[in-house]
Design a protein around this nucleic acid. Sequence first.
DNA 1: TGCCCATAGATCCTGTAGGATCCATGAATA
DNA 2: TATTCATGGATCCTACAGGATCTATGGGCA
Lengths: 258, 258
Amino acid sequence: MRAVSRGADGRISTTMTTSMTSDGDPLEPDLGRPVERRALRDGVYDAILELLLAGRVKPGASLSIDALARQLGVSPTPVREAMVQLEHTGLVTRAALKGYRVAPPLSAERMSELVDARTILEVAAVRGAVPMSDVALLELKAAHSDHVLAGDYVKRMRARNDEPSWSVVRRYYTADWAFHRVILSHCGNQYLLQLAEFLSPQVHRLRQLLGHGLTDVDQALAEHGDILDAIASGDNERAENAMRTHLLAVRARSLAES
Amino acid sequence: MRAVSRGADGRISTTMTTSMTSDGDPLEPDLGRPVERRALRDGVYDAILELLLAGRVKPGASLSIDALARQLGVSPTPVREAMVQLEHTGLVTRAALKGYRVAPPLSAERMSELVDARTILEVAAVRGAVPMSDVALLELKAAHSDHVLAGDYVKRMRARNDEPSWSVVRRYYTADWAFHRVILSHCGNQYLLQLAEFLSPQVHRLRQLLGHGLTDVDQALAEHGDILDAIASGDNERAENAMRTHLLAVRARSLAES
DNA sequence: TGCCCATAGATCCTGTAGGATCCATGAATA
DNA sequence: TATTCATGGATCCTACAGGATCTATGGGCA
């Protein structure tokens, strides 16, 4: 665990990876990019989120406020606020006056329900996102290329009989999710994106549960490619089916390894 | 605004209405009902949520931590934690190192998107909830009866040319939402309920925005009755259509009054 | 004169330290 | 064996100090 640190000028700085819910907007004209104003508790939130998603704490283990504060080098108050913020992710459970614990693992049934919920949201999103504007389509292609690149890293490590490191696996999953996010961002309904992001911590936890298997990188990338082609073709129904097929396969892969 | 108070024994007690997300379980054998363990910040959360849903603060107004703490008779820390908890509802916006503000009002477009998102979730939920078990059906009928009763109060007040009080309106809306919650609870996918509850604060705010009009109580109750009948008949498609029709009407009524 | 910038004060958010309260564990007793 | 009670540890809240932001006032410049 790394300590959250303050810069020499008193500003907050953390070298942890940023929250996965940060909006990318990679090709915005760099003129008016709003500087993010962050308090200490935001860095603490990222650190604990990373801790949970990396699976470095066992489900059911208690998360002591004081212990986390000591490890991160801050006082308990910002840790408490970060934990409050973490409650709605479902990654931790709270018992008032008793403390926080790491949420119990997902059962096979819950995993199935989770993917079903994603299917409901994302099929509806694809329906609203097609036809897609040219600039959005470029964004989607860029996201897919990045995903392919991240998949290459994974496959290359595996080819050398190395267990893919967590950072590589994380990069792959982040790129995977970014692809879906682009579609959700352009579906014409901002609530669908919010709902999907509400689910995303659980989805990431599910993947972490699967033991870094990533045995079907090629297949997953091919399915994403199908979705991309279908959206580019402007055919609503074909795009919906491609998304549905992909998520059905995701469910099958998830359940196969549980 | 009422002060959050501690009892003589130090226990927390608040006379504010409970959170709308509390699960009912009305007919549990009264032996081992688990007592809810609540910290002070939970009461503060309820108080501020009520403040926001009742519309007693204008959109865009700043929510001062210290001022709220003074009004509620507590120190700033539990207020800050309640505000953190309130962030994910979308009812307040946060700027780090600057403070919280009441979220801006929903535009017509956002209202439409919100109801669309509800439609996506709830139509899928009805599909999974039919056929419904007998005990669940009884629960649904009870919820509907309570809704009718609450509607009667509203209509009776209006018949006397009284503006329905906030508590009466709130009771009506709570019963309305409870009806939908029963369906979502028995759809076989707990994430659908969580997603709908994620949207519910915005839905309640939307209604509060409509200026306590409640001009179509009878029509809304009739639509709920149709949904109930369709679910009881065990006909999936008919139930889905009833729900879709209801939410289309909700959208029309919402947009008509904006 | 009019506009822009700098500065001082007030206000508020943020984080720390410390004490009060509550829960869980284990020993003592009937 | 079951119950009671004391002890340790953690949570939770309060009070206080530090830092950032905002507003108003005054000086500099065109």
